[in-house]
């Protein structure tokens, strides 16, 4: 009897607490997206072929990473990734190591802008998005990696490969809250030569340059793709030209710089490299 009355008191109190927290956690992005008339919502998309690896204890990192790598034609199992991203004393995986391990397996990690629209755009471009979430609360965090594979505008849900659920459907505002608590962190794994939907010059340059340090031989396709997209952007042209130079293709390295200088005649690093390359070609 006394237990019952205790429960009776506790439940309304908890509900009240829950409502307070709901009131605190605004979801501006979902609101903005869902307030559009239904014909102006992004179209539905679902990458049904993205594989699923139900996670084992504490190992959502390896599971999520294997999910995006396998979809990108890297034959790797979650078990093999444990030694690449798992930290025993932390019982989890750090974001930095997820990016580094993506690189180890010959894919370029590209962190996308923290917007729901960016996620949906990547899905449209065929890139599953690895997201970091805090499924719990800021004060009681429950950090988690999952992979967004679809968007359902009718149900207003995202579809995730998450934990032990193959098709985890989450209402946009709920996802936004869990994602917001993890600072809207998300990335895609690119096969060199593919551009992300949200490609931006300096981020792309950094992503490829970091990748090149580990895989110089594979980065050519990535520079070329960037150069095709932004032929007039100095850093991209420089990166591509330097890569060609390293491969011994001096003539093409020079012509990329000439092209750049025809647009930006005063760009000093290009002048300097071009004159060095011409000297070398003459000698």
């Amino acid at each position: 009897m006394s237990m019952r009355s205790g429960t009776r008191l506790r439940v309304p109190f908890l509900l009240f607490l829950a409502f307070l927290l709901v009131a605190c956690a605004a979801t501006p992005q979902s609101q903005q997206l869902l307030s559009r008339p239904s014909d102006q919502l992004p179209e539905g998309v679902e990458l049904v072929d993205v594989p699923f690896f139900p996670q084992e204890l504490y190992q959502c990192g390896p599971a999520a990473l294997a999910t995006i790598l396998q979809y990108n034609q890297v034959a790797v199992q979650p078990d093999e990734l444990v030694s690449h991203v798992y930290i025993p004393s932390r019982q989890g995986s750090l974001q930095v190591e997820m990016l580094a391990a993506t690189r180890t397996f010959e894919r370029i990690p590209y962190v996308i802008p923290g917007t729901l629209t960016a996620i949906i755009n990547e899905l449209d471009a065929g890139n599953p998005v690895l997201v970091f979430q805090n499924l719990g609360l800021s004060v009681l965090p429950q950090w988690h990696y999952a992979v967004v594979v679809g968007f359902d505008p009718e149900q207003q849900e995202l579809i995730l490969r998450s934990g032990t659920v193959r098709e985890h459907r989450v209402a946009l505002p709920v996802f936004e809250r869990t994602w917001q608590r993890a600072e809207h962190w998300a990335y895609v794994a690119l096969t060199p030569g593919d551009l992300p939907a949200s490609a931006e010059v300096s981020d792309y340059f950094m992503a490829v340059a970091d990748f090149q340090r580990l895989h110089p031989e594979l980065s050519g396709a990535a520079w070329q793709a960037g150069y095709q997209q932004w032929p007039d952007q100095a850093v991209i042209a420089m990166g591509y030209s330097n890569w060609l130079y390293q491969q011994g293709d001096l003539a093409r390295a020079a012509s990329v710089l000439e092209q750049l200088l025809s647009i930006q005649p005063d760009y000093q690093p290009a002048q300097q490299n071009l004159s060095a390359i011409r000297n070398e070609m003459q000698s």
Binding site: A18, F19, Q55, C60, L140, P173, R177
Partner: peptide
């Protein structure tokens, strides 16, 4: 933060989280 994705919480917290889950937080 290290992503681990499983819960290590006492029962009381489970109840709170269930309510918060239902509330969509």
């Amino acid at each position: 933060p290290a992503g681990e994705g499983l819960l290590e919480t006492v029962l009381f917290l489970l109840v709170i989280f269930m309510l918060l889950d239902i509330a969509g937080v």
